[in-house]
């Protein structure tokens, strides 16, 4: 019997065995040696699309996987356990108890600052992953407080409803608002309006009006056709030529008018007028002054006449001097 090639067989078995252990190690056995943080969250919505092994991400960075999904029968919440790879977080201490403590401190601080987890779609396949992040919610959903049955070994991250649930809520609200619209009443009103319109359309006056409009339209068409018959191309050209000639005449007239205006020496004439106006103004001023003086003279004469009327002897004696009374005589 032919004997086996022992070297070849040994090489085959050894390489196969080595490959076997490498594959086992690469495909997950290495996780045994990875230190993990235990996270847990409770969801009040469907977790369809999330399965054991689904990714857990912190602000988009993969940090672990979902390790267990269960139903809490006492409060009907869906419990999702997550294994978080601590190697994903760079701390001052890379190993030992200090690293664990640093990791815990970081997440406790983050949780106080409002870190929440939410289910997000991983693509068009319907698969989901758990996203840890700070989320702006509208409206604000109530946070599920840490229940007593979650032991201190687990780090509890409150969950918030997924975007899909938000959309569903919005749709429900919108549908509720739509349901409040009184479609029956609107329908009745529209029916009434349509009946009124029908009556209006059935009115004989409207029919007459339409007939008249049709006749007018026919007449206009006839007129238009007549105009088009009368206004042939040659006639239109003649009209255009006539207009052109008239425009040229108008242009010539404008040129000659401009020459005449320029020949009229408007500037000098205006200057003469201006000077004459100034002379009239001066004469007016002199006249006003003369009249004022004349008025004053008349006032003096009136006063003299009154004085003479009171004392005609003053014409001969002259004007009386006023009598001065000494203060002591008082």
């Amino acid at each position: 019997m032919i004997e086996a090639n022992k070297f070849r067989l040994g090489l085959f078995v050894i390489s196969g065995s080595v490959l076997f252990f490498i594959v086992i190690f690469v495909f997950g056995l290495s996780d045994i040696f990875v230190r993990k943080g235990k996270f847990v969250s409770l969801f009040n919505e469907s977790v369809q699309g999330v399965a054991v092994g689904s990714p857990v991400k912190y602000k988009g960075v993969p940090i672990g996987t979902v390790s267990k999904i269960s139903i809490q029968v006492n409060d009907k919440l869906i419990r999702v356990d997550m294994d978080i790879d601590m190697k994903a977080f760079v701390t001052d201490h890379q190993s030992g108890a200090k690293a664990v403590s640093s990791f815990n401190d970081f997440f406790e601080h983050e949780s106080k600052m409002g870190l929440r987890c939410r289910l997000e779609y991983a693509g068009i396949t319907g698969l989901k992953y758990v996203e840890l992040n700070y989320f702006d919610q509208f409206p604000q959903a109530p946070v599920i407080e840490r229940p007593k049955y979650i032991t201190s070994n687990y780090f509890y991250v409150p969950s918030i409803p997924s975007q899909f649930k938000d959309i569903l809520n919005l749709i429900n609200t919108s549908l509720e608002k739509i349901s409040r619209v009184q479609f029956d009443k609107i329908s009745d009103e529209m029916t009434g309006t349509l009946k009124s319109m029908q009556r209006l359309l059935d009115d004989p006056k409207l029919k007459m009006m339409i007939d008249k409009m049709e006749k007018m339209s026919d007449n206009m068409e006839k007129s238009s056709s007549n105009v088009s018959k009368v206004l042939t191309e040659s006639k239109l050209r003649e009209i255009v030529d006539g207009l052109d000639t008239n425009l040229k005449s108008l242009n010539n007239l404008t040129i000659s008018a401009r020459g005449s205006i320029e020949g009229a020496k408007f500037i000098e004439t205006a200057q003469s007028f201006r000077e004459a106006a100034y002379s009239v103004t001066d004469a007016r001023q002199a006249l006003l002054s003369t009249l004022l003086k004349l008025d004053q003279t008349l006032d003096s004469l009136t006063e003299l006449v009154n004085y003479l009327n009171d004392d005609p002897s003053s014409l001969l004696k002259g004007k009386h001097k006023p009598v001065v009374i000494a203060p002591s005589a008082k």
Partner: peptide
């Protein structure tokens, strides 16, 4: 065992 090794070689390492 001798035959077993032979068949291992024939069915295994020669089929790689």
């Amino acid at each position: 065992w001798k035959e077993t090794l032979y068949y291992m070689d024939m069915c295994g390492s020669q089929a790689v």
